[in-house]
Design a protein around this nucleic acid. Structure first.
Length: 496
RNA sequence: GGCCCGUUGGUCAAGAGGUUAAGACAUCGCCCUUUCACGGCGAAAACAGGAGUUCGAUUCUCCUACGGGUCACCA
């Protein structure tokens, strides 16, 4: 018999993903809460890979799990890559452990061998009154010992099933949902060991949680309905039942206004996809932390991971499902961007404008103009594309009600600006600003009447980050004058 | 369909028998202003419905409706 569980002190949580693809934000949030729960109570966070489904294995998926956790800052204390006292931490490497436990249950009459074929089971489902609700009919539950021995001796393919009590009620306590009771007659004799010899998730899960000393099982609420079966298993072994913390689902908003479980059609739902779309890992973590959990002092919204650890408590977790809101994520992302110091912002932003071929010397202006205005860094190229090339634009852009700018005033102002700007020797913010405001003053008009046509002529863009002065700075004197000439030439059709 | 869970503004949510039912995002308006954004101020917007219990229910109980989850040799 394998060793029994090592005795640990303190809280131990585990993140147990299966390597079947990318990291869904729902899974990430589960990992986050497991991390927060453990760390907030000075405990350990364990990573375990559940790869018992050989058919759904995806190459590289385990690396994605490692990278995502690292990138999100959820550092585990034990896991496949760093080891620990309960290794190995990959279920396929613990294969030898599970069957003896299952056989122990068989010997004790709490589980049994089942030789039913896939075909029989399919047939069972089809012939049932209600194909959707048919469970296993417990055909092999009462096979004689002799018959079982005979089948086994013949090497007949088989599984091991849990023998669920036919009567009674199983009750468990969940820290989020409270006490939940289910009649045992509604529980199926689930498979523990599959025909390929691998344990099912249902079985490996409880064996490993026990052996690894997991004190708090945190998982999505979709496991709520199978929890009674797990408890029956713990009881069958005489093991302690862990604390349960089931999490509300994360839903997505459908185009028709309804909601359903968050999936690809709602937009990016993988951590990597969100990062690729321009969301900062810290912002994603901050946002999903608040999806289904609320701090005691709920005046604060922006939390670092350390702050989350300090603020976290189980009773702040809500029962009702939350809808993923990209607008709110956007807001968090901009908050994180605005809070960056100059160096960090530069490091994130520079690659985007360099890729546009914009001169490094313009960084100062660019940074100042961009930081308060972007929600994601990937927006940078489209926001400043006018710097590299004057876009085609409609002359109607020169008309702007709020600035009182019209075609006529534009023609007039641009004429004056040509002279004024050719004349400037120091092409910097202060001198440009003072010369332009001086012009407005001498003309007896508002600054906007000068700035509007200038900005349009120089950028050809209705909305730009920063104003006319910044645009002039970014484009340079020569090209600015060139663009003003282009505008004047085009506007000349309105003369006469 | 059986079983389980849920339901406070468009979204995230606080509130746990007596409150003008917080706050944030989004929306709209105003201010600031060189367009936009930032910032400031403000507006609109909610206890799913019905029975109880109670002097009083958003808060407790039950029912209904709606939403979700689950019923695999997937996790």
């Amino acid at each position: 018999m394998p060793n029994s569980a090592i005795i640990f002190s303190g809280v131990r949580t585990r993140f147990a993903p299966s390597p079947t693809g990318f990291m869904h934000v729902g899974n990430l949030r589960t990992a986050l809460y497991e991390y927060l729960l453990a760390k907030s109570m000075g405990g350990s966070f364990v990573l375990r890979i559940e790869d018992t489904d050989r058919e759904r294995l995806v190459e590289g998926a385990t690396d994605t799990i490692f990278q995502t956790l690292k990138c999100a800052g959820l550092i585990h204390d034990e896991g496949p890559d760093i080891g620990g006292p309960c290794g190995p931490y990959v279920q396929s490497e613990r294969m030898h452990l599970y069957r003896p436990y299952a056989e122990q249950l068989v010997r004790e009459g709490k589980a049994y061998y089942c030789f039913c074929t896939k075909e029989r089971l399919d047939q069972l489902r089809l012939s049932s009154d209600n194909p959707d609700s048919a469970g296993y009919d417990r055909h092999c539950r009462t096979l004689s010992d002799d018959l079982v021995a005979e089948q086994l001796a013949l090497n007949m393919p088989h599984v091991i099933r849990q023998k669920v009590p036919l009567e009674g009620v199983t009750t468990f306590f969940d820290h989020v949902y409270g006490e939940i009771s289910v009649p045992n007659k509604d529980l199926e004799d689930q498979v523990l060991i599959k025909a390929d010899g691998f344990p099912t998730y249902n079985f490996a899960n409880i064996v490993d949680d026990h052996l690894m000393g997991i004190t708090h099982v945190v998982r999505g609420s979709e496991y709520l309905s199978s929890t009674p079966k797990y408890n029956l298993l713990y009881q069958a072994f005489g093991w302690n039942i862990p604390e349960y913390v089931h999490l509300p689902l994360i839903q997505g908003k459908n185009p028709d206004g309804t909601v359903s479980k968050l999936s690809k059609r709602h937009g990016a739902t993988g951590f990597e996809d969100l990062v690729a779309e321009g969301y900062l890992p810290e912002a994603i973590i901050n946002y999903i932390a608040l999806l289904g959990w609320c701090p005691k002092d709920n005046t604060q919204e922006v939390f670092s991971l350390e702050e989350l650890v300090r603020a976290f408590s189980i009773d702040g977790i809500s029962k009702s499902p939350a809808t993923f809101d990209y607008d709110k994520l956007d807001w968090f992302n901009s908050e994180y961007i605005r809070a960056m110091d100059a160096r960090a912002f530069y490091e994130h932003a520079a690659p985007y404008y360099r890729q546009l071929g914009v001169d490094e010397a313009l960084s100062a202006t660019l940074l100042e103009v961009l930081q308060p205005r972007i929600t994601k860094f990937i927006e940078i190229p489209e926001k400043i594309s006018y710097v590299k090339a004057l876009p085609e634009y409609d002359l109607s852009l020169f008309e702007h009600k709020k600035s009182k700018s019209t075609i006529e005033t534009s023609i007039s102002m641009l004429g004056k600006l040509t002279d004024l700007l050719s004349d400037i020797s120091e092409w910097n913010k202060d001198s440009l600003m003072s010369r332009l405001t001086a012009l407005a003053e001498s003309e007896g008009v508002k600054n906007a009447l000068v700035m509007w046509p200038l900005r349009i002529a120089v950028t050809g863009t209705l909305v730009t980050p920063g104003g006319a002065v910044e645009a002039l700075l970014l484009i340079g004197q020569k090209e600015s004058l060139n663009r003003i000439e282009i505008a004047r030439a085009r506007l000349s059709i309105f003369n006469n």
